[in-house]
Design a protein around this nucleic acid. Structure first.
Lengths: 336, 336
DNA sequence: TCGCCTCATGTTAGCGCTAACATTAAACCA
DNA sequence: TGGTTTAATGTTAGCGCTAACATGAGGCGA
C-alpha cells in the first residue's frame, strides 16, 4: 500500500531506465522484474503490483535489443518486397503484419527495387538483425542471395509464385497458369491478335510464357510482348506501339488501366460489355479501382493479403504443408 | 598467401559463426575483426585480407543485435502508419526507406489500423526495439502515446499534417487549407450544393473543416458530410445518399473514383470537361489512376514520397528547420 | 641516441537482459 | 514427524559485440 518514494523517478533526465533500476525501486531482484514483464503468473500478486508501480513510476520500457541477445529470440521477421508504393505487395505486407504484430513480432521491411544487387544487400542487412524468419516476394535473384537464406537456418517463405525448388516454404500462385487462363479466355472470345504488356521481372515473365504458349497451342500467331519500364506511367502510349492487336493481357491492373486510357483516346473503348470491345483488356491484381472504372476491368484476381497471412502462418508453424497454392480467379467484367 | 586451413569452416552445422570464431580462424583478436567490418581503414591490408577470407570461409554475418547493445546504436527507425495496403502512405514509406536503407538503417514497420489503442501498443513495441527515430503518419491519438514519444528522447517526425504543437519535427501539409482550396475552386465554378465524403480520421476531419468554413464564408449552405466506413468500397453507393449536390470533395482518390462510378450509373457523368459535369468531383492524393480514367480526376496532389524523404532527413539532421510544409497542388482535370 | 609520435593491434569491462540453476519458506502427506 | 513437493525469489554467468583505454613496434627529428 505504502509506496516508498525514495526517488520520484529518475524522470526523463538521463538514459532510459533499466530493469535493475526498476528492481531497485521495487526492492526485488532484476529477474523478478523480468518475470513480471514476461511471465507475470510466476510472480506473487503483491510483488507484481509493487514492480508494476515501479515500472510506471520510472516509465520503464523493456529493452528488447538486450532481451533478444540474452534469449536468442528477436521476435522479428524480415520482409523483402520489390517495392511497397503503388503495389499490390502492400496488401501482402499488411496481411502478414496483421497476423504477426499481435503475437509480438515486429516487421523489418526492406525493398529490393527489382535490383539484384540491392536485394542481396538487403537480405544481408535483414539477416544481420537475426530475424526469426524471412518472408520475401519471389525468390532470390542471385545464387548468393539463395545461399545466404539457406545458411540462415530460419524459416524462409517465398511468395507470389510457386518456385520449383523453394528454399523452404512457399505461399503463392501459378503465374504461368494465370497467363494460360487469360489466353484461353481470349481465344474462346474469338480474339486473334494477342499482346502482353508488363515488366520483365520473373513473375511477369512466367505469366508471359503461359500466355504465349497457350496462344500458340491454339494456333494463334505468337503474341507481341511489350516490356514496359516500371515508371512508364500506366502505359498510355503502349497502344500506339501495338496496332492491330485485338486483345491485351497487362501484367498488372495499373498497366491495364493505362492501356485502356490509350484505347479511349484512339476511340477504341466502349462502355458496353466485353463482346463490344474492339480490343479486349485483361489486367492482374484486381485493384478496387478495377470494378469502379468504366468499362469495368476484367482481371486476374489474386489474394495479396491471403498470401501475406499464409506466409505469416508458415513462419510460425514449422510442420505441415510448406507449399501453399492460393490460386487466382479470372474475374470477367466489361473490358474483355 | 598460404591460408592455414585448420578447420574447413564450421559450415552450416551449428549456430551462426561469431566474431571471435572469425578472429580465431584469422589469428587475430575479435576487435580486429570488428574493425574490419566497421572501420576497415584502421586495419593493415594484409590483416584485413586474412580476416575477410576467414569471414567468407565461415559465412560470417555480423550480429547487429549484439552490436546494437554494445554500442547503444540500433541503426533502425520505427515507422508507424495507419495502414499500408491501398494507401498513399505506402509512397511515404517507400520514400523514407529509399533514403534510410543506403545509410544502413532498417525500417521497423507497424500499423495502427486507425485504432488508438493499437497505436499505443505499436508505439510501445517500436520503442522497445530502441529505434533511433520514429516517423509516424499524423500525431499520437492519445495522451499516453504522446508521453511515450516525448520521453523517448529520440527524433520524432509527425507527417501528413502540420500539428500546432508537434512533439519534435513535422513534414506534411495543411489539410485545412486543402479543404479551403477545393471549396474555393468549386465556388468559383459556380457550384452551390457541396458535399464532403471521407473518413473521420484527424486529417480527413481537418480537410472537412477547411472545406465547410470556406463554403460558409462564401454564402453557401453548410455542405453535407458523409462519413464513410473505411471498407465502404469506393463509396459507389454514396451518390444515392447525396441527391441534389452538384459538387463533391472526396477525402481520397479512391473514394472519388467510387463516387464517380455511382454518378455514371445515375447518368450524371460526362466525358467532357469540368464545366460539362452535372456533379463536380475532386479527390485527394493524385493516384496514377487519376489521370488515366475518364473523365480524368481533378484532385489535390500531395507528394507522399517527398514527405517520406523529408521525414528521413529530419531524423538524420537534428538541427535546422523542424517544420517542413511540403504543400499540395490542386490539379484540375475533367471531373470538376 | 632519446623522446615522441603514429600505426596496428590487443585487453578489459560491460551494454541490459535472460537461461539455468540455486535457495528458502511454506504446504503437504503418509 | 521428517521427507518431499510447490511456490516465490535470487544468484551466476554469459549472449556477441564495442568503447575506451592499453601496448608495442617502428619511424623520425634533433
Amino acid at each position: 500500500m505504502s509506496s516508498e518514494v525514495t526517488d520520484p523517478g529518475t524522470g526523463p533526465t538521463g538514459a532510459a531506465p533499466t530493469l535493475s533500476e526498476v528492481a531497485k525501486r521495487a526492492g526485488v531482484s532484476s529477474i523478478t522484474v523480468s518475470r513480471v514483464v514476461r511471465m507475470p503468473d510466476l510472480v506473487a500478486p503483491e510483488t507484481r503490483a509493487r514492480v508494476e508501480q515501479a515500472m510506471r513510476d520510472l516509465g520503464y520500457i523493456p529493452n528488447l535489443v538486450a532481451g533478444a541477445l540474452a534469449s536468442a529470440r528477436t521476435n522479428s521477421v524480415g520482409v523483402l518486397v520489390p517495392t511497397i508504393a503503388n503495389s499490390i505487395f502492400a496488401d501482402t505486407v499488411q496481411g502478414l503484419s496483421d497476423k504477426l504484430e499481435p503475437l509480438g513480432f515486429s516487421v523489418i521491411l526492406a525493398q529490393s527495387r527489382y535490383d539484384a544487387a540491392r536485394e542481396d544487400r538487403m537480405l544481408a542487412a535483414l539477416l544481420s538483425r537475426r530475424p526469426e524468419a524471412i518472408i520475401m516476394v519471389g525468390s532470390p535473384a542471385t545464387e548468393e542471395g539463395s545461399r545466404l537464406l539457406r545458411n540462415a537456418r530460419i524459416p524462409i517463405v517465398e511468395t507470389w509464385d510457386l518456385p520449383a525448388n523453394p528454399i523452404d516454404a512457399v505461399a503463392g500462385f501459378d503465374n504461368y497458369k494465370a497467363g494460360v487462363a487469360v489466353a484461353k479466355h481470349l481465344v474462346a472470345q474469338g480474339r486473334k491478335q494477342l499482346a502482353f504488356i508488363g515488366g520483365d521481372d520473373p513473375r511477369g515473365t512466367r505469366r508471359w510464357f503461359g500466355f504465349r504458349d497457350e496462344a500458340l497451342a491454339n494456333g494463334l500467331a505468337e503474341p507481341r510482348r511489350l516490356i514496359l519500364d516500371r515508371k512508364d506511367s500506366g502505359s498510355v502510349a503502349a497502344h500506339a506501339r501495338l496496332p492491330d492487336v485485338d486483345a491485351v493481357f497487362a501484367a498488372n491492373d495499373a498497366h491495364a488501366i493505362g492501356f485502356m486510357s490509350g484505347l479511349r483516346k484512339a476511340g477504341l473503348l466502349r462502355d458496353g460489355p466485353a463482346s463490344a470491345q474492339p480490343v479486349a483488356v485483361i489486367g492482374l491484381g484486381d485493384l478496387e479501382m478495377a470494378r469502379l472504372i468504366s468499362p469495368t476491368l476484367s482481371t486476374i484476381s489474386v489474394h495479396g493479403d491471403a498470401i501475406g497471412r499464409t506466409a505469416a502462418t508458415l513462419t510460425l508453424e514449422r510442420d505441415g504443408e510448406r507449399r501453399i497454392d492460393l490460386g487466382f480467379e479470372l474475374v470477367l467484367r466489361d473490358s474483355g
